[in-house]
């Protein structure tokens, strides 16, 4: 299985995807949580608005992204915006070079999951005792210093959980890839994470259960190793967090 270039390629695809999507989602959802936590007016409104996409199905969002926002014709939302600036339409999902399809996949996933992690961070932020901030204010700390030395350390337990969940989610990448990129009965040879590859090998018309299960075992091993390493680094489950 490991000698199959397509499978190795799928592992690379998905490592690259994880390396990008995990920190990006982390930063954006933490930023959103900080902004919402600071808002005094209509806080619950903003909270709900940011959280709402979480309730949307990945399949539905993928189809909206594919068919209406990033469709290749002039009336697609993204191309209509480009049109205002006099730029040509871009067939976002058809081009392999430059790889615009990553923009479509990544924005869809960000839209879907940022709200959920924002809520987790928000809960963490609201648990931080105000006395810490008061003490810091007396000591003359403000802005970035407060964030760096109080908010971030106090959010460690939340951050650990968020990172772990994000990584698991990235490993499970299937829905939006499959629904955005598959065409009638085929899937392009790029942007093919392992679950998509294994779907076509074992469950699709291939029905090659031997290679499919071998791939699944390799995937499980990788996830287990990453989870253990991450647990070590972040000292998951330590007392006193």
């Amino acid at each position: 299985m490991l000698s199959d270039p397509a499978f190795r390629n799928s592992l690379v695809t998905f490592l690259a995807f994880a390396v990008f999507i995990v920190p990006t989602t982390f930063v954006i959802s933490l930023g959103a949580a900080l902004l919402v936590a600071r808002t005094r007016v209509m806080q619950s409104f903003f909270r709900s608005v940011f959280f709402l996409p979480t309730a949307c199905s990945y399949v539905v969002a993928a189809l909206v992204w594919k068919m209406s926002i990033f469709s290749g014709i002039r009336s697609g939302l993204a191309n209509a915006v480009l049109g205002w600036f006099g730029a040509d339409s871009i067939p976002w999902l058809s081009l392999a070079d430059p790889p615009w399809y990553w923009l479509v996949i990544v924005t869809a996933r960000l839209w879907l999951q940022v709200g959920f992690y924002m809520i987790l961070f928000l809960a963490g932020i609201q648990r931080i005792s105000p006395t810490l901030y008061e003490a810091a204010a007396i000591d003359g700390a403000e802005g970035w210093k407060v964030f760096r030395h109080i908010t971030l350390p106090q959010l460690r337990a939340t951050s650990t959980a968020v990172l772990l969940l994000l990584l698991i989610n990235a490993f499970q990448a299937f829905d939006e890839f499959y629904n955005i990129l598959s065409t009638f009965g085929t899937y392009p040879p790029y942007a093919r994470p392992p679950l998509v590859y294994l779907y076509y090998t074992a469950l699709g018309s291939g029905q090659d259960f031997g290679h499919g299960s071998a791939g699944a075992v390799i995937l499980t091993l990788i996830i287990a190793i990453v989870a253990v390493v991450q647990g070590r680094i972040l000292r998951l489950g330590d007392r006193g967090d």
């Binding site: 068919m67 990033f70 469709s71 290749g72 014709i73 697609g76 339409s89 058809s94 065409t183 009638f184």
Partner: peptide, 8 residues
């Protein structure tokens, strides 16, 4: 034509 909302 590329990226039509509905395929061929």
């Amino acid at each position: 034509l590329l990226g039509a909302p509905k395929d061929w």
